[in-house]
Each structure stands twice: as structure tokens, then as C-alpha cells.
Design a protein around this nucleic acid. Structure first.
Length: 331
DNA sequence: CAACCGACCTGTTCGC
DNA sequence: TGCGAACAGGTCGGTT
């Protein structure tokens, strides 16, 4: 589930590997991977172009090419990028291959086929016209955040996930930022006081910056060309349903907001009476406390550490799969 | 503008 | 043991 820190890591890993290389051909193995262009037109469009750099905008990797062209790569949930020598082991999940002049190839691997690659030549249209500001940019000041959030009427969780509001925030870092700022995910934007706005702005940036340093969270299928991140070991609420809150020890709760799992501490993240009344249906119908189980050592009378929580088992299995994917990608 | 839904996809986990 | 349902979640298009 690549969000801003994961995509930033992929872009940084890729940059020294492919900058200066020239693309000679493209092979599309799943046509819908391409956004609004046929495999034939795409291959013609990229052939002969030199890669001038790799950057990130929101959750997309941007590969700049000569002649005012660029590629956008959205990894969505399971997309991965690898650079391997041509003739590396076959992999059934590779959807697009960019062949390089120097005998290597860039592979876009994507189990669930949600990922999309776009080619833009000579600025026909701006794919980022609707994309919100970069939360880690210097220009994203607390004043800028306040200007954007004021006048919004919705709840904070969906708002943080709205890419036209802020670019790059996904389910993991939205939950983490709200927990760190002690703001309830169902709180409405208009009820935020200046101090709440400042904490949310500060914690959002602090957590995203920390996650970039830690190379992102390697959960499920996410990995970067140079290997897994470690932010998953520093998450405070995400996927910790039923486990104790790191601040107050009460169990983390899980609700569903806008179809997405949302984790929070009902003690540390308070809701006003008005917001609670408005959110009563959500809080009641989707609450699933303790569903994922907790560490034995933390149960009353529990002794020692017997086994792993479900989240831990899942992460362990996922790490094994990622290692296998890297091996089969030849890198 | 807000909120929700189904669609897009596949692999893993869970309940029966 | 096996099978199907539920789940994971980023975004888009559509509806209320």
C-alpha cells in the first residue's frame, strides 16, 4: 500500500539506477496498465528517449524523459518497480517492461493489476492538475494548512485521504497522524480549534518525514528496488485493533469510515457530543474491538510471549513473499 | 460539497 | 479437508 513515503523511497532508489539510460522498447503484458494509450503507441512514444530523472508527485512516480515527455507510475496497492538485466527470471505478475539500451530492463510488477502507467508528451494535459499540495514542501506551512482546512465540512479521515486536499496521504499515515495529534478520525473539520489544526499539521509532517527516513512501511506487497522499509515497526495504531494504546494502554479500536479500516484510541482521540451523535451509526455498526487478538503477555495474568498477533503473523508471511518476489525479479 | 457505492483485481485468511 | 466469503485499499465514475 504505497503512500507518500513508500513512493518517495521507490523514486529515490530508482533515480541513480536509471537516470541517463535510454529506453529502446516497451512490452506491455497487461494492456489496462497503460492509462489512455495503446501498447503500440506507448512503445513508439518511449522508444529512443533518454531518462533525465525520477521524482515523485503525491503517490505517483514521475520519470522525466527528453523531449518534454514524462511517465507517471501509480503503484496503487501492489505495484512494484525493479531494474534487472534482460533475460532475468520470468515472473507472471510483470505487467510492463521498459527495455534499456544498456541491456537492462525496468519491470513494473503488479499482482492486482490496479497500477497505472501514463505517458505525457509535450504537456498535452497536466495529470496533476487536481492534485493537492505536497505536505512535506516548505510552502506547506501551518497557515497554508489552515487556509485549506477551513471551509471544509467533512470528517477528517476522508479529508486526509482526499488527494486533491493533500497529496500522498493514504490509510496508514492518515490514522497515524490523527492518533499522534490526538484528533478523532470522525471529527468534522469545522470543529478543529487552532491548536488542533497546528498539532495535526505538525504530526502529519513529522510522521511522513520519519517514514521517508525509514524507507516506508513494508506491509503486504510493498517493497522498494533497494529493499524493504522499517516504518511498519514504528506504527502506533494502524492494524493494532485490540492491542493497547501506546499512550494510555486502552485497546485500539477499529471502525470502517468510507469503506476503509480506521484505527484510533477512543480515550486519546476524543469526539465532541455533537460529532459523536452524528457518527453514532458508524461507531456502533462497524465497531469490532479485539477482533485481531492481542499479545498474551498483555492480557490480565498473561505470562511471557506466546505466539504472535494476527497482524504480526501476516507481516512475517508478507516479508517472505516480498523476498521471493525480489529473487524472481532477478534483483 | 459530502457521503456512499460498485468496480477494478488477486492472494490470503477465516469461518463453517 | 475443502470451499466460499470476507478482507486488504487507491481511485474513478456514478448516485443520492
Amino acid at each position: 500500500m504505497p503512500e507518500l513515503p513508500e513512493v518517495e523511497t521507490v523514486a529515490r532508489d530508482l533515480r541513480p539506477l536509471i537516470t541517463g539510460a535510454t529506453i529502446v522498447d516497451a512490452t506491455t503484458l497487461w494492456a489496462r496498465t497503460l492509462r489512455g494509450i495503446t501498447p503500440e503507441a506507448f512503445a513508439i512514444g518511449v522508444a529512443g528517449r533518454r531518462i533525465e530523472g525520477v521524482s515523485r508527485r503525491g503517490k505517483q512516480v514521475v520519470v522525466s524523459l527528453d523531449g518534454d515527455a514524462f511517465l507517471t507510475i501509480h503503484l496503487k496497492m501492489t505495484g512494484q518497480l525493479f531494474v534487472v538485466r534482460q533475460g532475468a527470471l520470468d515472473d507472471p505478475y510483470v505487467r510492463l517492461v521498459l527495455e534499456l539500451e544498456d541491456g537492462r530492463e525496468i519491470r513494473f510488477r503488479d499482482i492486482r493489476k490496479f497500477g497505472r502507467v501514463g505517458l505525457y508528451i509535450a504537456a498535452d494535459d497536466d495529470p496533476f492538475a487536481q492534485t493537492g499540495p505536497e505536505p512535506l514542501a516548505d510552502s506547506f506551512t501551518v497557515a497554508a494548512f489552515r487556509r485549506r482546512i477551513r471551509g471544509r465540512k467533512g470528517r477528517l479521515k476522508p479529508l486526509l485521504l482526499d488527494q486533491s486536499f493533500i497529496a500522498g496521504v493514504g490509510n496508514i499515515y492518515a490514522d497515524e497522524a490523527l492518533w499522534a495529534a490526538r484528533v478523532h478520525p470522525l471529527r468534522t473539520a469545522r470543529t478543529l480549534r487552532p491548536a488542533d489544526e497546528r498539532r495535526l499539521w505538525l504530526e502529519l509532517r513529522r510522521i511522513l518525514a520519519e517514514a521517508v527516513i525509514r524507507r516506508g512501511s513494508s506491509i503486504d506487497d510493498y517493497t522498494a528496488p533497494d529493499g524493504d522499509g522499517e516504518m511498519q515497526d514504528h506504527l502506533r495504531v494502524y492494524q493494532r485493533s485490540g492491542e493497547p494504546c501506546f499512550r494510555c494502554g486502552r485497546p485500539i479500536r477499529r471502525i470502517v469510515v468510507g469503506g476503509r479500516a480506521t484505527h484510533y484510541c477512543s480515550w486519546c482521540q476524543r469526539l465532541s457530543a455533537a460529532d459523536r451523535a452524528a457518527a453514532r451509526t458508524i461507531l456502533r455498526s462497524t465497531a469490532t474491538p479485539d477482533r485481531l487478538g492481542r499479545r498474551w503477555s498483555e492480557l490480565p495474568g498473561g505470562e511471557g510471549s506466546v505466539g504472535l498477533t494476527r497482524a504480526e503473523r501476516t507481516r512475517k508471511a508478507a516479508a517472505t513473499r516480498r523476498a521471493a518476489a525480489r529473487a524472481s525479479a532477478g534483483g
